[in-house]
Computed example of a mutant assay.
Amino acid sequence: MNAGVNGSALAPAAARRTRLRDYQAQLLARMQAAQSGAAEAQHQLGVDIGGARYLLELTEAGEIVAPPPLAGVPLTQPWYLGLANVRGSLLGVIDLARYLDPKAAASGPEARLVSLAPRLGFNCALLVTRVYGLRRRSAMQAEGAVLRDADGHAWTPLSLAALVREERFLHVALQPRQ
């Protein structure tokens, strides 16, 4: 009887893990195809950052993980959350919502870290409020600087390559008072 109870309790968890692994494998395959140029250009990763929807280039994004425990770093900007150990690599973690808007609220349980692609040359991950998954840019209508999907949601393209060149992004240390 116990085996049946345990088996039935484990079945939904095992199914969720299997679906998550399948989703991650599918996402990884598409990201690798995008990097090799084999995928349809314009596939992007949809994320929520502080209540706004953004599109990230797949070739600029790396791994997506749940936020692990962070080691705080003193005397840094409020948006610099500290260091995370992700599969043996130390990554600096930036709360992208607070970087874009200092008054942004803290992220909830759906928050994820999106690491930057190695080609960008930064051991860094961005805390995003939520990951929506892949979006096809070609299926959206351009309205100035934003794109609108079939459901009417506005998406703003965000270049991670441009982000890592921003002077403010590069200086996480608090500036001494003069």
Rank of each mutant, 00 (worst) to 15 (best):
A3Y: 07
N6V: 12
G7M: 02
S8D: 06
A9S: 09
A9Y: 12
A9K: 13
L10G: 11
A11P: 00
P12E: 05
P12T: 04
R16I: 09
R17A: 15
R17Y: 12
R21D: 14
R21M: 13
Q24P: 00
R30Q: 14
M31S: 11
M31V: 11
A33N: 01
A33L: 08
Q35N: 13
S36V: 03
S36R: 15
G37N: 02
A38I: 05
E40T: 09
E40R: 12
Q44M: 15
V47Q: 04
V47N: 06
R53I: 04
L56R: 02
E57N: 13
L58Q: 02
L58G: 04
E60K: 00
E60A: 00
A61G: 06
A61R: 01
A61T: 03
E63P: 00
I64R: 00
I64Q: 00
I64V: 14
A66N: 09
P67C: 07
P68G: 12
G72V: 11
G72Y: 04
V73C: 03
L75T: 10
T76P: 03
Q77V: 03
P78L: 04
L81S: 10
L81H: 05
G82R: 03
G82S: 06
L83F: 04
L83C: 09
N85A: 14
R87L: 08
G88R: 04
D95K: 03
D95P: 04
A97I: 00
A97G: 07
Y99I: 03
Y99T: 02
L100H: 02
L100W: 02
P102Y: 02
A104I: 08
A105I: 03
A105C: 07
A106H: 11
G108H: 06
G108C: 08
E110G: 00
E110R: 10
E110D: 11
A111N: 05
R112C: 13
S115I: 06
S115H: 02
L116D: 02
L120S: 07
G121D: 03
G121F: 04
G121L: 05
F122H: 14
L126M: 06
L127N: 02
V128S: 01
R130I: 03
V131Y: 00
V131D: 05
V131A: 10
Y132H: 15
G133Q: 08
G133I: 10
G133M: 07
R135L: 09
R135G: 06
R136A: 15
R136D: 15
R137G: 10
R137E: 07
M140D: 01
M140I: 01
M140P: 00
A142K: 12
A142Q: 13
A142C: 04
E143N: 13
G144T: 10
G144R: 01
A145E: 12
R148V: 15
R148S: 07
D149L: 05
G152Y: 03
T156W: 05
P157C: 04
L158Y: 07
L158H: 00
S159Q: 12
L160S: 02
L160K: 01
V164D: 01
E166K: 03
L170P: 11
H171I: 03
L174I: 07
Q175V: 14
Q175T: 14
Q175G: 07
Q178K: 13
